[in-house]
């Protein structure tokens, strides 16, 4: 016998269960990391250099290294990604070249991050002779997050209603003026979303920085973009696998700092996006 009400209940149960299964690990990750890491967090941990073979002291150089790397990646990737997205969504005609470029971007997003690391090593570290440096690491991370930024920006640009462009043209605006004054401002929330995703990814990846910038141990901050730097994800990897007898608390505290750093960056961007959303009504 078919019983639509029962089928409905069963469907609802599985749909809800699937959603719960997604939410559960996220919650557990946060809870475990906070409960195990929070006791080790104090001002010294955040502001001091690592001491005693990284078994005590702080992680300040790693925090700053990650901040530098993420900033560098965004400085490189956001303008290029945005300009490329504007070209692809506003100017490019649908021809073979455009399709090849779009396909390349999709594939770029699918490349494993360790491959970016090797690519960065070959191109920036060796070929351009930047050495293992913040510059090389930032550029490598930047290339890694380009497809995220381009894809999100294109979607944001294409979601701006055609009628806005039409009016702008009808008032005598050129294509670039229309893009500059009408399309881009209305696409900013979506572009920010892409940037958020890119930021989070750049901050958390270990493989791309492994060969291009990351220092095992540096007792001071880098002095220029040609210096090596410590970075949180790599530091976490090092104290978890390479250095024996590191207190579990310190490992979880490092993970917590990385998590909070990424969440804070996201939060800032979400707030900006929220401000734009409030004004948008169409």
């Amino acid at each position: 016998m078919r019983n639509p009400q029962r089928t409905e209940k069963i469907a609802f149960f599985f749909l809800f269960l699937a959603t719960l299964v997604i939410a559960l690990p996220v919650g557990l990750v946060v809870i475990i990391i906070i409960s195990k890491g929070l006791p080790a967090i104090n001002w010294q941990f955040l502001s001091d250099i690592p001491r005693q073979g990284m078994r005590s002291g702080g992680i300040f150089p790693a925090i700053m290294g990650t901040v530098y790397l993420v900033t560098g990646a965004i400085i490189f990737a956001l303008p290029i990604g945005l300009l490329a997205a504007v070209y692809l969504s506003e100017y490019a005609k649908d021809n073979l070249l455009t399709r090849v470029i779009k396909l390349a971007i999709v594939n770029l997003a699918g490349v494993p991050s360790v491959v970016y690391g090797l690519f960065g090593l070959a191109l920036f570290v060796v070929f351009f002779k930047f050495g293992a440096s913040i510059l090389s690491g930032s550029l490598t991370l930047g290339i890694m997050i380009l497809p995220i930024i381009i894809t999100a920006s294109r979607e944001a640009l294409e979601s701006v209603p055609y009628s806005f462009r039409e009016v702008s043209y009808s008032l005598g605006a050129s294509k670039w003026q229309t893009i500059r004054h009408i399309v881009l401002p209305n696409a900013i929330p979506g572009i920010l979303t892409g940037t958020i995703l890119g930021l989070g990814r750049a901050a958390g990846e270990t493989a791309p920085i492994l060969f291009t910038v990351a220092a095992f141990y540096l007792p001071q901050l880098p002095k220029s973009i040609f210096d090596q730097a410590m970075a949180l994800p790599y530091h976490l990897y090092v104290i978890s696998t390479q250095v024996p007898n590191v207190d579990e608390k310190i490992r979880y505290a490092t993970a917590l700092v990385l998590l909070v750093l990424v969440l804070c960056m996201n939060l800032v961007a979400i707030l900006i996006r929220y401000q734009f959303r409030k004004r948008k009504k169409w």
């Binding site: 009628s163 806005f164 702008s168 043209y169 008032l171 004004r279 009504k281």
Partner: peptide
Amino acid sequence: DLVSLRKQVGMVFQRPNPFP
């Protein structure tokens, strides 16, 4: 010259379409 043409000839559309 499309810019001066469109300055001279304005258009009102079917759906009111102010910018946001």
